[in-house]
Design a protein around this nucleic acid. Structure first.
Length: 281
DNA sequence: CACTTGACCTGTCCGC
DNA sequence: TGCGGACAGGTCAAGT
């Protein structure tokens, strides 16, 4: 599910909602969502105070006052949805939902639900000082919306993956952190590059266009609250609107917004890939 | 080593 | 209406 814009939207929402909340109780409906030791994780969370919520790539980092950090990966279908005390009690018969895996209750009666239809997502409690050594975080590449991500930087990064398709390179989190299937397709459309092109064959001009396109698409999507294909919801359960404006993603057979030819779909890097044969070469 | 494929799960949609 | 198969926003291990 969530790529950088969706995770960013959730994080901005949660940061405002969860600051200073005290964990009263953790209910575990699916232990696999706490892969490191469900009972111990729940125990260590209880009583903790939330400081702030941040993100690295697609990973959500919830900083606690006990020198620990709750790291959350939503994978394809994960959701983190907050209900204030009033809402939680008003709709209590609907909660937890069918796909609720973890519920974190706070002392003021508010609740944070971790829902995950496909069960791929997870939450891990880490000591803050081990964050830099955490294997998943350690492997992540550059943040595409940071100042460190320049066109020159992208050109160097793509040289590392010279033999592979440019789409596979965009999906590789160790190169750029946060791009997934939707924004890979959108960025490649905007830069006029066929997803199957080899990284080594891209000209400097094309890399510059791709760099601009990535930043433009991610920023635009954050503005629209991200993309909801099916499962994505923000911190208070709302859908995102980016797909109503998408260039190619999810628009197979519809007219290209630039040239009018039908958008096509093929398989590249093992993923369904949307593109316009007229605009991308 | 570089790159691709299958597995992890559940749910939905499409064609017959 | 029912059933099988393909497919879905991610990542990792195993394969070529």
């Amino acid at each position: 599910m969530p790529e950088l814009p969706e995770v960013e939207t959730i994080v901005r929402g949660l940061d405002g909602l969860l600051a200073a909340k005290v964990v009263a109780e953790v209910r575990v409906f699916y232990p696999g969502s706490f892969p490191d030791d469900p009972a111990l994780t729940a125990t260590r969370l209880t009583g903790a105070v939330i400081r702030r919520v941040d993100r690295r790539g697609k990973a959500i980092l919830i900083y606690l006052d006990n020198s620990r950090v709750l790291m959350v990966h939503l994978k394809m279908t994960g959701q983190l949805i907050y209900y204030g005390q009033e809402t939680a009690s008003r709709i209590s018969e609907l909660l937890p939902g069918r796909s609720t895996r973890i519920a974190i209750h706070f002392i003021d009666g508010s609740v944070l639900y971790f829902n995950d239809q496909r069960k791929f997502g997870w939450m891990k409690l880490l000591a803050e000082e081990e964050l830099t050594r955490q294997p998943f975080l350690q492997k992540l590449g550059v943040e595409p919306l940071s100042g460190a991500f320049t066109a020159g930087h992208l050109e160097k990064l793509l040289n590392r993956r010279k033999g592979s398709s440019v789409k596979a390179a965009l999906l590789d989190q160790s190169i750029i952190a946060g791009i997934g299937n939707i924004y890979a397709d959108e960025s490649l459309f905007l830069s006029g590059i066929d997803p199957d092109r080899r990284c080594r064959d891209l000209t400097s001009e094309e890399v510059k266009r791709l760099h601009r396109a990535i930043r433009r698409v991610l920023r635009e999507s954050i503005k629209m609250g991200g993309s909801t294909r099916r499962n994505y919801r923000n911190a208070i359960g709302q859908t995102g609107d980016y797909l109503t404006k998408a260039w190619v993603y999810g628009r197979t057979g519809e007219a290209c917004r630039k040239c009018g030819r039908p958008i096509m779909k093929k398989r590249t890097a093992g993923r369904g890939t949307h593109y316009c044969p007229g605009c991308q070469s």
